[in-house]
Computed example of a mutant assay.
Amino acid sequence: MLKEIYEQPSAILDTFRGRLLSKEAIIKMSGVEDNMKKFLAADRIIIVACGTSWHAGLVAEYIFEDLARIPVEVEYASEFRYRNPVITEKDIVIAISQSGETADTLAAIKLAKSKGAFVFGVCNVVGSTIARETDAGAYTHAGPEIGVASTKAFTTQITVLTLMALRLARAKGTMSSSEFRHHLIELETIPSKVEEALKSDAYVKTVAEIYKNSTNFLYLGRGFNFPVALEGALKLKEISYIHAEGYPAAEMKHGPIALIDEQMPVVVIATKKGHYEKVVSNIQEIKSRKGKIIGIVTKGDTSVKELADHVIEVPETLECLTPLLTTIPLQLLSYHIAVMLERNVDQPRNLAKSVTVE
Rank of each mutant, 00 (worst) to 15 (best):
C50Y: 00
S150D: 01
T151N: 07
T271L: 00
L236N: 06
K237C: 08
G274N: 08
T326C: 09
E33N: 03
E285H: 07
V122A: 11
A108F: 00
K3F: 12
T159H: 06
M252R: 03
F154T: 09
A11I: 09
P256K: 07
G255Q: 02
G291T: 02
N124D: 07
V304E: 12
R132S: 12
E342H: 13
D91E: 15
E33L: 02
F226Y: 10
I45G: 09
S334D: 01
Y219G: 11
V345E: 00
A338G: 05
D91H: 15
V304M: 15
L325H: 04
T162C: 00
Q98V: 09
I242N: 06
A202R: 15
R222N: 06
E101G: 00
Q284V: 03
A258L: 02
Q347N: 14
G255H: 02
A249C: 06
D261T: 01
Y276G: 08
Q263M: 11
N282G: 08
G295S: 15
V126I: 12
R19Y: 04
H275F: 13
T15W: 00
E101Q: 02
D34S: 11
D261F: 10
L218W: 10
P9M: 06
L307S: 08
I269A: 12
T356H: 13
L58R: 14
K353V: 08
S288H: 12
V314D: 04
S97G: 14
A11S: 09
I63R: 02
N213Y: 08
L333F: 11
F217P: 00
P227G: 13
L259S: 04
E342K: 13
R349L: 02
E209P: 01
E4N: 03
T129D: 07
K237W: 05
V267C: 06
I109N: 05
G223D: 01
K90F: 12
A131I: 03
W54Y: 13
A56K: 07
Y62E: 07
R19L: 04
A352T: 15
R222W: 04
N350Q: 04
A244D: 03
K113Y: 06
V304G: 11
Y139V: 13
D104R: 00
L325I: 04
H336A: 13
E313K: 14
I27T: 14
Y241K: 08
R170G: 05
I45P: 05
D91P: 02
V207H: 02
K305M: 05
E188A: 09
Q284A: 12
T327P: 08
